[in-house]
Amino acid sequence: MGGDHAPGQIVAGAIRASEELDAEILLVGDRQQIQDALQHHAHTPNLEIVEADGAIAMHEGVTELRRKPQASINVAMDLVKQNRADAVVSAGHSGAAMASATLRLGRIRGIDRPAIGAVFPTLLAGKSVIILDVGANVDCRPKYLEQFALMGTIYSQYVMGVEEPKVGLLNIGEESSKGNDLALRTYEILEANKQIPFIGNAEGRDVLSGRFDVIVCDGFVGNVLLKFAEAVGEILLQIIREELPQGWRGQVGSAILKPNLKKLKQRVDHAEHGGALLFGVEGVCIISHGSSQAPSIFNAIRLAKEAIDNQVIERIRANNAANQEITSVSDATANSQSGS
């Protein structure tokens, strides 16, 4: 029920996903509105409506989650909690989705703060970079960024297929001495953690260069970066449309360039990525853009399925447990040495 084009475009994307991804979709929300949207489609396989009482509107605060226990986002999270579903996809109130996931699913043990991870295209064809956090945590501590780096590394390896991911810390300079107190302390922690393939600071110009596979930052900076990148992609596509010649020449040129333009759109249009994964909670949760239409919802469901198929939650849980064990041993050794 969330998003600027709900429920019509959400339903359309879900129908496509059920057909092309062989996924069983549970449509959570107002039954009558969803049924009205379904009537515009001749074929609706593997779709089930789950009734919910209301939704969290974009102008409402996350405190409404407690006042509306049967709101659609809460019902959807409960389906995962009860093992009736494997993932939640929402284009609604992102703060409500994150809060509901944290309250109803809980955090993975050892994860202090969930993080939203967004995939960006790079200058290298076929290569992407995942950036986290892009909005869940405005203020961060160094250990949060360390946890983000560990989770991003796992995602890069098992979902994006990068055998040896390169992790960077978003900063104002490459040198380890650059940045504010958070950046300086985080650099030391990332460099010391042998489970993180950290290669140093990433400047703004490095984000889309392809040099890094994972970049970590606090949610304030990450969200600004996300919105800026989305705007650049939209502007680039609009400029190309405007600069193509008018009339028959434009039609001929467009026909010739169509395959290339399609590939360009796939690389720079945020709708092609579908949404961002909420890392650190006990369940797969995809947060989509509020303006999402059917193609974006389809891609969001595809993203959820990839996370499920590659056991992202299970791998993060196991890796984090191992990291905690290593940290405990290191702390015990350090204390022993200082005592002697």
Rank of each mutant, 00 (worst) to 15 (best):
V11F: 00
I25T: 02
A42E: 14
R67H: 15
A55P: 00
A76E: 04
A71R: 01
T122R: 06
D139N: 12
V89A: 13
A97H: 06
V11P: 02
T63E: 11
E19Y: 00
V50Q: 07
R109C: 05
G117E: 05
R107Q: 10
G126P: 04
R107D: 03
P69T: 10
I73M: 11
I56P: 01
P7Q: 02
R113E: 03
I73R: 02
M77Q: 11
E19H: 06
H41G: 04
I108W: 08
T102V: 14
N46M: 01
V28K: 00
G106W: 08
L124I: 13
L26M: 13
A71E: 02
A6W: 03
A17R: 03
I131T: 02
Q32E: 10
G135H: 15
R31E: 11
Q32K: 14
K81P: 08
L65A: 09
S128A: 12
I49L: 00
G61I: 02
E20M: 13
E48Q: 15
P69K: 13
L21D: 11
Q32L: 10
S94E: 11
A23C: 08
G95K: 04
A55R: 12
I15N: 04
D30P: 04
V28L: 00
S94Y: 08
I108G: 13
D53I: 09
I131G: 01
L26F: 15
S18I: 01
E64K: 13
A91P: 06
Q35P: 08
A17N: 04
Q39C: 09
S94L: 04
E64A: 15
V28N: 00
M98V: 09
A52G: 05
R67P: 07
A87S: 10
D53E: 14
V134P: 03
Q82P: 02
P114S: 07
S72H: 09
D133Q: 08
A99R: 10
G8K: 11
E20H: 15
L27R: 00
D36E: 09
A12L: 01
P7S: 07
G95H: 05
L21E: 07
D36Y: 11
G110K: 04
R66S: 13
L79F: 04
I56R: 13
L103E: 07
V129C: 11
L103R: 13
I25S: 03
A136I: 12
P142C: 07
D30I: 03
A85L: 04
M77N: 02
Q82K: 14
H93F: 04
A96S: 08
A23K: 02
A97E: 03
R104V: 12
A6Y: 01
R84N: 10
A97G: 10
R84W: 11
G95N: 07
V50A: 06
A76D: 00
I34D: 04
A37T: 03
A6R: 03
D78Q: 15
D133C: 09
A87D: 09
L38E: 00
A57W: 07
M58D: 10
H43L: 08
A96L: 09
G110E: 10
D78C: 09
L27N: 00
A55L: 14
L124Y: 05
I49V: 15
V50Y: 01
G29R: 00
I108S: 12
L26A: 12
A14I: 01
D86N: 12
G106P: 11
L124S: 13
S100V: 07
D22G: 05
V75I: 14
